[in-house]
Design a binder for these strands. Sequence first.
DNA 1: CCTTGACTTCGAGCGCACTGCAAGGAGTGA
DNA 2: TCACTCCTTGCAGTGCGCTCGAAGTCAAGG
Lengths: 124, 124
Amino acid sequence: MTSLTIAEAAERTGLTAHTLRYYERDGLLLHSVDRAPSGHRRYTDEDLRWIQMVTRLRATGMPIRDVRRYAALVREGDGNEVERLGLLLAHREVVERQLAEVTGHLRAIDYKIALYEGKVEQSA
Amino acid sequence: MTSLTIAEAAERTGLTAHTLRYYERDGLLLHSVDRAPSGHRRYTDEDLRWIQMVTRLRATGMPIRDVRRYAALVREGDGNEVERLGLLLAHREVVERQLAEVTGHLRAIDYKIALYEGKVEQSA
DNA sequence: CCTTGACTTCGAGCGCACTGCAAGGAGTGA
DNA sequence: TCACTCCTTGCAGTGCGCTCGAAGTCAAGG
């Protein structure tokens, strides 16, 4: 169980040190990060795994406040799996709808691109 | 060539009247929208078609300022098709990268969901 | 004539998710 | 010992994309 400074954790998660502190303050992590005697944060592998889940949720567009709710459920411990599942299922629906919408728009944009490619080729 | 009030245009485009005015003010439209003698805006079919293109670009995550650049190119008229094409191609790349990333994260979330479904089923 | 309601402009305000800054403490290499 | 760098907290600021509110105009219906 290695223990990383905030800079190292930032590098490994792709977040900034600022954002890591912000997530902790905002209740997105499961608990306060451990401290070295100096008061500096020390991140465990477990911390990093959770933060990766958080970044997955964030990267798929889940709002901070929903991530916080999910973290709160996990923090509570066993017994609320149905609620956690519901939250994730609802999120998946949103993401899938979004993917479909974006894909549709992208197809229309591709059509436009094809038109321009035709024009540009002709004038070349 | 029908001519619509801002409320009707809002309904047809899915934007709010507020947003339609904002887009016009911000240079996302090709020209100022026509006015009735009363000063009220009147949207043409052509306006609506362009606004649909704008919403496609926005819905796929193109920043307002890039939409504005694209609108400026179209406004300039023939001769800059290569530039327009470049802008759209660059945007397509961004969108496709994003789709891939989101899809990947979604798969990981699905895995988590499957775990919870197993747990919930077992306790049922 | 009077009210209602949709429209106008302008500028301010908001929600989100960071991001930056100031002031100070702590650990490390020369 | 000194300089340097990384870390700490707290709070303010930023950028984006709207969104709202105030105050006024105008056309139509009762």
